[in-house]
Amino acid sequence: MNEEIKKPSFKFKLVDAFYIIMMILPLAFGLVLDALTTPPSSGVNIAGARIYHEINLGGSRFFNIIISEAQVNSILVLITIFFVFLYLTHGLKEKIELKRQHLAEIIVQKVDGLVGENMGSDFSGFPPFIIAIMALSAFSSLVSLLGLYPATSDMNVVTGWAILVFIIITYYKLKCGPLYYLNGFTKPVFILAPINFISEFATPVSMAFRHYGNVMSGGVISVLLSTFLAWLSALVLGWAGDYVASIPIFQVGLPAIFSVYFDIFSGCLQAFIFAMLTMLNISGAFDSEEYYRRKKLKEEKKKLKNINGGI
Protein backbone atom coordinates (compact mmCIF):
# COMPACT_ATOMS: atom_id res chain seq x y z
CA MET A 1 0.00 0.00 0.00
CA ASN A 2 2.60 2.46 1.08
CA GLU A 3 4.12 3.07 -2.27
CA GLU A 4 7.11 5.23 -2.57
CA ILE A 5 6.34 8.53 -4.24
CA LYS A 6 8.78 9.02 -7.05
CA LYS A 7 10.67 12.24 -7.14
CA PRO A 8 10.23 14.05 -10.43
CA SER A 9 13.08 13.50 -12.79
CA PHE A 10 15.46 16.21 -13.95
CA LYS A 11 13.87 16.35 -17.36
CA PHE A 12 10.42 16.83 -15.84
CA LYS A 13 11.69 19.70 -13.73
CA LEU A 14 13.36 21.25 -16.75
CA VAL A 15 10.12 21.24 -18.74
CA ASP A 16 8.31 22.70 -15.72
CA ALA A 17 10.83 25.49 -15.46
CA PHE A 18 10.44 26.19 -19.17
CA TYR A 19 6.66 26.49 -18.78
CA ILE A 20 6.97 28.83 -15.79
CA ILE A 21 9.46 31.02 -17.62
CA MET A 22 7.20 31.14 -20.66
CA MET A 23 4.30 32.18 -18.39
CA ILE A 24 6.18 35.17 -17.02
CA LEU A 25 8.12 36.15 -20.12
CA PRO A 26 5.22 37.56 -22.22
CA LEU A 27 4.02 39.73 -19.33
CA ALA A 28 7.57 40.96 -18.67
CA PHE A 29 7.90 41.72 -22.37
CA GLY A 30 4.64 43.66 -22.22
CA LEU A 31 5.87 45.67 -19.22
CA VAL A 32 9.15 46.52 -20.94
CA LEU A 33 7.33 47.52 -24.13
CA ASP A 34 4.95 49.64 -22.07
CA ALA A 35 7.80 51.34 -20.22
CA LEU A 36 9.69 52.06 -23.44
CA THR A 37 6.77 53.54 -25.36
CA THR A 38 4.92 55.50 -22.65
CA PRO A 39 5.33 59.18 -23.40
CA PRO A 40 6.26 61.26 -20.35
CA SER A 41 3.13 63.03 -19.19
CA SER A 42 1.41 64.19 -16.06
CA GLY A 43 -2.11 64.87 -14.93
CA VAL A 44 -5.27 63.31 -16.25
CA ASN A 45 -4.56 60.87 -19.01
CA ILE A 46 -7.60 59.03 -20.30
CA ALA A 47 -6.89 57.73 -23.76
CA GLY A 48 -7.48 54.68 -25.87
CA ALA A 49 -4.87 52.07 -26.67
CA ARG A 50 -1.62 53.43 -28.01
CA ILE A 51 -0.83 52.53 -31.58
CA TYR A 52 2.54 50.83 -31.97
CA HIS A 53 2.65 50.44 -35.70
CA GLU A 54 0.54 51.33 -38.67
CA ILE A 55 0.72 49.56 -42.00
CA ASN A 56 -0.85 51.33 -44.93
CA LEU A 57 -2.02 49.16 -47.79
CA GLY A 58 -2.70 52.22 -49.90
CA GLY A 59 -5.84 54.20 -50.40
CA SER A 60 -8.07 55.47 -47.67
CA ARG A 61 -7.92 55.09 -43.91
CA PHE A 62 -10.06 52.01 -44.20
CA PHE A 63 -7.15 49.94 -45.51
CA ASN A 64 -4.81 50.76 -42.64
CA ILE A 65 -3.73 47.81 -40.55
CA ILE A 66 -3.19 49.08 -37.04
CA ILE A 67 -1.17 47.20 -34.45
CA SER A 68 -2.27 48.66 -31.14
CA GLU A 69 -1.37 48.12 -27.51
CA ALA A 70 -4.58 46.18 -26.92
CA GLN A 71 -3.84 43.66 -29.66
CA VAL A 72 -0.27 43.12 -28.48
CA ASN A 73 -1.40 42.72 -24.87
CA SER A 74 -4.15 40.29 -25.75
CA ILE A 75 -1.73 38.11 -27.69
CA LEU A 76 0.74 38.22 -24.79
CA VAL A 77 -2.05 37.16 -22.43
CA LEU A 78 -2.94 34.40 -24.87
CA ILE A 79 0.60 33.01 -24.73
CA THR A 80 0.59 33.23 -20.93
CA ILE A 81 -2.69 31.35 -20.63
CA PHE A 82 -1.46 28.71 -23.07
CA PHE A 83 1.55 27.96 -20.89
CA VAL A 84 -0.44 28.18 -17.64
CA PHE A 85 -2.68 25.40 -18.88
CA LEU A 86 0.27 23.42 -20.23
CA TYR A 87 1.84 23.70 -16.79
CA LEU A 88 -1.35 22.61 -15.04
CA THR A 89 -1.76 19.56 -17.26
CA HIS A 90 1.90 18.58 -17.28
CA GLY A 91 2.43 15.15 -15.75
CA LEU A 92 -1.17 14.03 -15.49
CA LYS A 93 -1.46 10.57 -13.96
CA GLU A 94 -4.37 8.34 -13.19
CA LYS A 95 -3.12 8.17 -9.61
CA ILE A 96 -2.66 11.78 -8.59
CA GLU A 97 0.94 12.63 -7.75
CA LEU A 98 1.08 16.38 -8.21
CA LYS A 99 -0.92 19.06 -6.44
CA ARG A 100 -1.59 20.94 -9.65
CA GLN A 101 -3.58 18.03 -11.01
CA HIS A 102 -6.22 18.67 -8.34
CA LEU A 103 -6.55 22.25 -9.55
CA ALA A 104 -6.78 21.15 -13.18
CA GLU A 105 -9.45 18.59 -12.33
CA ILE A 106 -11.46 21.12 -10.32
CA ILE A 107 -11.42 23.55 -13.25
CA VAL A 108 -12.50 20.88 -15.72
CA GLN A 109 -15.26 19.59 -13.43
CA LYS A 110 -16.62 23.07 -12.69
CA VAL A 111 -16.74 24.10 -16.35
CA ASP A 112 -18.25 20.77 -17.40
CA GLY A 113 -20.92 21.20 -14.74
CA LEU A 114 -21.62 24.80 -15.73
CA VAL A 115 -21.94 23.98 -19.43
CA GLY A 116 -24.03 20.87 -18.77
CA GLU A 117 -26.35 22.84 -16.51
CA ASN A 118 -26.86 25.76 -18.89
CA MET A 119 -26.59 24.26 -22.36
CA GLY A 120 -27.86 20.71 -22.10
CA SER A 121 -26.51 17.50 -23.54
CA ASP A 122 -26.44 18.69 -27.16
CA PHE A 123 -23.42 20.86 -26.48
CA SER A 124 -21.04 18.45 -24.80
CA GLY A 125 -18.14 19.75 -26.93
CA PHE A 126 -18.38 23.30 -25.67
CA PRO A 127 -16.52 23.39 -22.29
CA PRO A 128 -13.08 24.02 -23.88
CA PHE A 129 -14.43 26.99 -25.84
CA ILE A 130 -16.22 28.41 -22.79
CA ILE A 131 -13.21 28.12 -20.49
CA ALA A 132 -11.01 29.63 -23.20
CA ILE A 133 -13.24 32.69 -23.51
CA MET A 134 -13.58 32.97 -19.73
CA ALA A 135 -9.84 32.70 -19.08
CA LEU A 136 -8.94 35.09 -21.88
CA SER A 137 -11.44 37.68 -20.69
CA ALA A 138 -10.50 37.37 -17.01
CA PHE A 139 -6.74 37.46 -17.59
CA SER A 140 -7.05 40.34 -20.06
CA SER A 141 -8.84 42.39 -17.42
CA LEU A 142 -6.55 41.31 -14.56
CA VAL A 143 -3.48 42.37 -16.54
CA SER A 144 -4.30 45.93 -15.44
CA LEU A 145 -3.04 44.95 -11.97
CA LEU A 146 0.46 44.86 -13.45
CA GLY A 147 0.00 48.33 -14.90
CA LEU A 148 -0.47 47.11 -18.45
CA TYR A 149 -3.29 48.32 -20.65
CA PRO A 150 -6.17 45.84 -20.22
CA ALA A 151 -7.09 44.52 -23.65
CA THR A 152 -10.77 44.31 -22.71
CA SER A 153 -11.03 48.08 -22.32
CA ASP A 154 -10.44 48.41 -26.05
CA MET A 155 -13.68 47.93 -27.89
CA ASN A 156 -12.10 46.25 -30.92
CA VAL A 157 -10.93 43.23 -28.95
CA VAL A 158 -14.27 42.60 -27.26
CA THR A 159 -16.18 43.18 -30.49
CA GLY A 160 -14.02 40.50 -32.09
CA TRP A 161 -15.13 37.99 -29.47
CA ALA A 162 -18.76 39.08 -29.81
CA ILE A 163 -18.63 38.60 -33.58
CA LEU A 164 -17.19 35.11 -33.05
CA VAL A 165 -20.07 34.27 -30.72
CA PHE A 166 -22.53 35.74 -33.24
CA ILE A 167 -21.14 33.48 -35.98
CA ILE A 168 -21.60 30.43 -33.74
CA ILE A 169 -25.15 31.51 -32.88
CA THR A 170 -26.02 31.90 -36.57
CA TYR A 171 -24.43 28.54 -37.35
CA TYR A 172 -26.64 26.84 -34.79
CA LYS A 173 -29.70 28.70 -36.07
CA LEU A 174 -28.93 27.52 -39.61
CA LYS A 175 -28.73 23.90 -38.51
CA CYS A 176 -32.44 23.44 -39.20
CA GLY A 177 -32.08 24.69 -42.75
CA PRO A 178 -31.97 28.24 -44.16
CA LEU A 179 -35.73 28.42 -44.79
CA TYR A 180 -36.53 27.61 -41.17
CA TYR A 181 -33.98 30.27 -40.14
CA LEU A 182 -35.60 32.94 -42.31
CA ASN A 183 -39.04 31.89 -41.14
CA GLY A 184 -37.93 32.49 -37.57
CA PHE A 185 -37.84 36.23 -38.25
CA THR A 186 -41.56 36.39 -38.97
CA LYS A 187 -42.54 35.09 -35.53
CA PRO A 188 -44.83 35.77 -33.77
CA VAL A 189 -46.30 38.17 -36.35
CA PHE A 190 -45.08 38.91 -39.85
CA ILE A 191 -44.99 42.67 -39.24
CA LEU A 192 -42.33 42.28 -36.56
CA ALA A 193 -39.74 41.02 -39.06
CA PRO A 194 -37.66 44.26 -39.19
CA ILE A 195 -37.55 44.48 -35.41
CA ASN A 196 -36.52 40.83 -35.15
CA PHE A 197 -33.83 41.51 -37.71
CA ILE A 198 -32.46 44.39 -35.67
CA SER A 199 -32.58 42.45 -32.42
CA GLU A 200 -30.55 39.74 -34.14
CA PHE A 201 -27.69 42.21 -34.48
CA ALA A 202 -28.31 43.73 -31.07
CA THR A 203 -26.98 40.59 -29.39
CA PRO A 204 -23.30 40.96 -30.35
CA VAL A 205 -23.47 44.76 -29.96
CA SER A 206 -24.85 44.54 -26.44
CA MET A 207 -22.36 41.83 -25.46
CA ALA A 208 -19.43 43.90 -26.71
CA PHE A 209 -20.70 47.16 -25.17
CA ARG A 210 -21.39 45.53 -21.81
CA HIS A 211 -17.93 44.06 -21.41
CA TYR A 212 -16.10 47.07 -22.82
CA GLY A 213 -18.17 49.61 -20.89
CA ASN A 214 -17.71 47.89 -17.55
CA VAL A 215 -13.94 47.48 -17.78
CA MET A 216 -13.32 50.89 -19.30
CA SER A 217 -15.54 52.76 -16.84
CA GLY A 218 -13.55 51.15 -14.02
CA GLY A 219 -10.34 52.47 -15.55
CA VAL A 220 -11.78 55.98 -16.05
CA ILE A 221 -13.06 56.12 -12.46
CA SER A 222 -9.66 54.99 -11.13
CA VAL A 223 -7.89 57.76 -13.05
CA LEU A 224 -10.41 60.38 -11.93
CA LEU A 225 -10.11 59.25 -8.32
CA SER A 226 -6.34 59.39 -8.24
CA THR A 227 -6.36 62.80 -9.92
CA PHE A 228 -8.84 64.07 -7.34
CA LEU A 229 -6.70 62.72 -4.49
CA ALA A 230 -3.60 64.41 -5.92
CA TRP A 231 -5.52 67.70 -6.12
CA LEU A 232 -6.78 67.23 -2.54
CA SER A 233 -3.32 66.59 -1.14
CA ALA A 234 -1.97 69.63 -3.00
CA LEU A 235 -4.78 71.68 -1.44
CA VAL A 236 -4.21 70.41 2.11
CA LEU A 237 -0.40 70.50 2.02
CA GLY A 238 -0.28 73.80 0.16
CA TRP A 239 1.01 75.72 3.23
CA ALA A 240 4.17 73.57 3.45
CA GLY A 241 5.77 74.76 0.23
CA ASP A 242 5.69 73.73 -3.39
CA TYR A 243 7.83 70.64 -3.05
CA VAL A 244 5.78 69.02 -0.28
CA ALA A 245 2.52 69.93 -2.04
CA SER A 246 3.60 68.09 -5.16
CA ILE A 247 3.69 64.79 -3.23
CA PRO A 248 0.25 63.19 -3.64
CA ILE A 249 0.15 61.78 -0.10
CA PHE A 250 -3.58 60.92 -0.20
CA GLN A 251 -3.03 58.61 -3.14
CA VAL A 252 -1.66 56.01 -0.73
CA GLY A 253 -4.18 53.32 0.10
CA LEU A 254 -7.58 54.46 -1.12
CA PRO A 255 -7.11 53.70 -4.86
CA ALA A 256 -6.06 50.18 -3.90
CA ILE A 257 -9.40 49.54 -2.21
CA PHE A 258 -11.24 50.74 -5.29
CA SER A 259 -8.97 48.64 -7.44
CA VAL A 260 -10.13 45.49 -5.62
CA TYR A 261 -13.62 46.18 -6.93
CA PHE A 262 -12.90 47.68 -10.34
CA ASP A 263 -10.00 45.47 -11.40
CA ILE A 264 -10.40 42.13 -9.64
CA PHE A 265 -14.13 41.76 -8.91
CA SER A 266 -15.44 43.54 -11.98
CA GLY A 267 -12.96 41.85 -14.32
CA CYS A 268 -13.78 38.34 -13.12
CA LEU A 269 -17.52 39.07 -13.00
CA GLN A 270 -17.54 40.36 -16.56
CA ALA A 271 -15.64 37.29 -17.74
CA PHE A 272 -18.24 35.08 -16.04
CA ILE A 273 -21.13 37.09 -17.49
CA PHE A 274 -19.67 37.06 -20.99
CA ALA A 275 -19.21 33.28 -20.86
CA MET A 276 -22.68 32.82 -19.36
CA LEU A 277 -24.35 34.93 -22.07
CA THR A 278 -22.38 33.04 -24.72
CA MET A 279 -23.73 29.77 -23.37
CA LEU A 280 -27.32 30.97 -23.04
CA ASN A 281 -27.38 32.60 -26.49
CA ILE A 282 -25.89 29.59 -28.25
CA SER A 283 -28.12 27.06 -26.54
CA GLY A 284 -31.13 29.32 -27.12
CA ALA A 285 -30.33 29.53 -30.83
CA PHE A 286 -30.47 25.77 -31.34
CA ASP A 287 -33.98 24.38 -31.82
CA SER A 288 -33.25 20.80 -30.82
CA GLU A 289 -36.81 19.50 -31.24
CA GLU A 290 -37.03 20.68 -34.85
CA TYR A 291 -33.51 19.46 -35.56
CA TYR A 292 -34.18 15.93 -34.36
CA ARG A 293 -37.54 15.84 -36.14
CA ARG A 294 -35.83 16.74 -39.41
CA LYS A 295 -33.06 14.24 -38.77
CA LYS A 296 -35.58 11.48 -38.21
CA LEU A 297 -37.48 12.41 -41.38
CA LYS A 298 -34.26 12.34 -43.39
CA GLU A 299 -33.31 8.92 -42.06
CA GLU A 300 -36.75 7.56 -42.84
CA LYS A 301 -36.52 8.92 -46.37
CA LYS A 302 -33.11 7.31 -46.76
CA LYS A 303 -34.46 3.98 -45.55
CA LEU A 304 -37.37 4.18 -47.98
CA LYS A 305 -34.97 4.98 -50.80
CA ASN A 306 -32.76 2.04 -49.88
CA ILE A 307 -35.71 -0.32 -49.79
CA ASN A 308 -36.98 0.98 -53.12
CA GLY A 309 -33.50 0.76 -54.60
CA GLY A 310 -33.13 -2.79 -53.34
CA ILE A 311 -36.29 -3.86 -55.04
Binding site: F209, M216, S217, V220, L269, I273, L277
Partner: peptide, 20 residues
Protein backbone atom coordinates in the same frame (compact mmCIF):
# COMPACT_ATOMS: atom_id res chain seq x y z
CA UNK B 1 -29.52 37.99 -9.81
CA UNK B 2 -26.02 38.81 -11.07
CA UNK B 3 -27.00 37.72 -14.59
CA UNK B 4 -30.14 39.82 -14.44
CA UNK B 5 -28.23 42.82 -13.12
CA UNK B 6 -25.72 42.49 -15.95
CA UNK B 7 -28.51 42.53 -18.51
CA UNK B 8 -30.36 45.40 -16.82
CA UNK B 9 -27.12 47.34 -16.85
CA UNK B 10 -26.94 47.29 -20.64
CA UNK B 11 -28.99 50.43 -21.25
CA UNK B 12 -26.84 52.36 -18.82
CA UNK B 13 -23.72 51.14 -20.55
CA UNK B 14 -25.06 52.23 -23.93
CA UNK B 15 -25.40 55.71 -22.47
CA UNK B 16 -21.90 55.49 -21.02
CA UNK B 17 -20.40 54.48 -24.35
CA UNK B 18 -22.21 57.35 -26.08
CA UNK B 19 -21.00 59.79 -23.42
CA UNK B 20 -17.41 58.57 -23.82
Amino acid sequence: MIMGCAIAETTGLYALVIAI
